[in-house]
């Protein structure tokens, strides 16, 4: 059974069944939560109980961070995707890319400011094909990797690109004739539309006026976590 950054078991693979924490997100905030020694109420839910909190199931003998480390030390343990080697997309506002686009395509990058604060968004890759885009209710578009704001990057097409699962367990990127193109790893030219481009861990996909998607292998990411 997958477990969330705070160590709860969960059947749902997107957000924890118990505490609602996103699954597959670095447990930075969870790791920063204070160690729980036992006598005080459970820091998750306030319940007093024995070793395991009776209400939320947290093990008082370890912090959420150590449970994450435990998961990392057992590489065969299924992750949220149900496979040992899941992949993750991190969407973030990229100042360098925005500056580059502003120089290159001033007609739109100039009028679109990069937001001061844009929380990183995380998407677990599963299934065989994922649509990257922005939601449109009127057109019935529900992207899997939904980059609808706020903050909104209007340079992203509603149907912008696809991530397609490869036979070998990796992913390829396909631009599906987006209005403003899809760029890979800071290259000057956009990738060709409708042509799959295989991706590797750490690849950066640039789209819109300031959005960058970083592809991460979850198993490697885990190993970098502080023990």
């Amino acid at each position: 059974m997958p477990s969330c950054p705070r160590g709860h078991d969960t059947v749902a693979t997107d957000y924890c069944d118990e505490c609602g924490s996103p699954i597959g997100v670095p447990a930075s905030h969870a790791a920063a939560s204070p160690a729980w020694t036992g006598d005080e109420p459970c820091p998750e839910c306030g319940t007093r109980s024995g070793r395991f909190c009776e209400a939320c199931g947290r093990d008082r003998g370890e912090t959420a961070g150590t449970s994450e480390a435990r998961a990392a030390s057992a590489p065969d343990m299924p992750t949220a995707t149900g496979t040992p080697n899941g992949w993750l997309i991190v969407a973030w506002a990229n100042r360098d890319y925005h500056a580059h686009m502003r120089a290159k395509a001033p007609q739109f990058a100039e009028v679109v400011d990069i937001p001061d604060t844009a929380p990183k968004r995380h998407f677990v890759l599963n299934g065989s094909q994922l649509l990257i885009g922005r939601r449109s209710q009127s057109r019935g578009i529900e992207p899997d990797i939904d980059l609808t704001g706020p903050p909104e990057d209007p340079g992203i097409s509603h149907t912008h690109a696809l991530l397609v699962a490869n036979q070998d367990g990796g992913w390829s990127l396909v631009d599906i004739q987006s209005a403003n193109g899809t760029y890979l790893n800071g290259q000057d030219k956009p990738i060709e539309a409708n042509q799959p481009v295989p991706l590797t861990d750490g690849d950066q996909i640039h789209l819109g006026a300031w959005t960058t998607l970083t592809l991460r292998s979850r198993s490697k990411k885990r190993q970098r976590l502080p023990r």
Binding site: Y15, S21, H29, P119
Partner: peptide
């Protein structure tokens, strides 16, 4: 109403 999270933290508030 749900327990407050840390700044930067995301939670699912309802399904």
């Amino acid at each position: 109403a749900l327990p407050a999270g840390a700044v930067g933290e995301e939670r699912l508030a309802a399904r």
